[in-house]
Amino acid sequence: MSELGSMNKQMDWKKANVIVAGVDVGSVTTKVLILVEGQVYAWSQVRTIAPKESVFNAINEVRYQTGLELQNIQYVVATGRGSTQVTFAQRTMSEISCAVAGALRIWGSSVRTILDAGGDSCKVIHCTDKGRVTDFLWSDKCATGIGRSMETFADLVKKEVTEIGDIALQSDQFPKLSDFCVVYAQSEALDLIRSKVPLKQVIAAYHYAMAKRISTLVARSGVKKDFVIIGGLAKNPGIINWLESILKVSRLAPKPEVDPTLIAALGAALFADAFYRRQ
């Protein structure tokens, strides 16, 4: 994945009073989101390699688009796995609180359950209508790396990670794979290929197994509507389709304003905005 970025061209940061940033250093990608006067202004997303480096790459991407420098940003909140590596952040917040803040901003106060299905871990978060986190469940070690494994799997079958989700939906019938552990599932998927099962079906089988694994976590924690999904896997139609079918609950559709992978960064930026104004 190369640097991506986007900007709300109708705003002019040079005339603004409050400019803040949320930085989400995840296990797969690092995201920066800028709020100007509380509105989403610009964002960027780069691959996480060495966190400090990736953060600067993301900041530079924003600067390249908008001219905004680090010194123009009045408050920065960092979140995500590598949050402590964001040396210029005023403070850090957990990705749990940030996910809730971002989700409520985008989908509204009817949200009660958020599934953050990221690269390394999945979390199920419950909140009140005021955006207070009531409890959360973090995936156990045996469910590690489902998101990242999608990339590995896509690589193994020489497809793009952005296309395997759609391919997964093309088969109605497919064999069953171990749905407890990703290592077993990938290993069995390779065995299926060796047994000359068509690649389309293997991809479908793998997606189903992963969806089942995530659904176990969600079911353990419980789903209260409205239900939203954020993080990289929110963009995989294969996973989403079976997750909704297994759990018998549908999520609210993603909104175009902010990509599901940026919700936590948005939340962090919202906290930055609030902390700055309270100073």
């Binding site: 796995r81 402590t84 957990s94 990705e95 749990i96 609180s97 959360f136 973090w138």
Partner: peptide
């Protein structure tokens, strides 16, 4: 450590 810290920070925030 990074993962545990995130969970613990979340607990404190709650």
């Amino acid at each position: 450590i990074a993962q545990f810290r995130a969970q613990l920070d979340a607990l404190v925030e709650i």
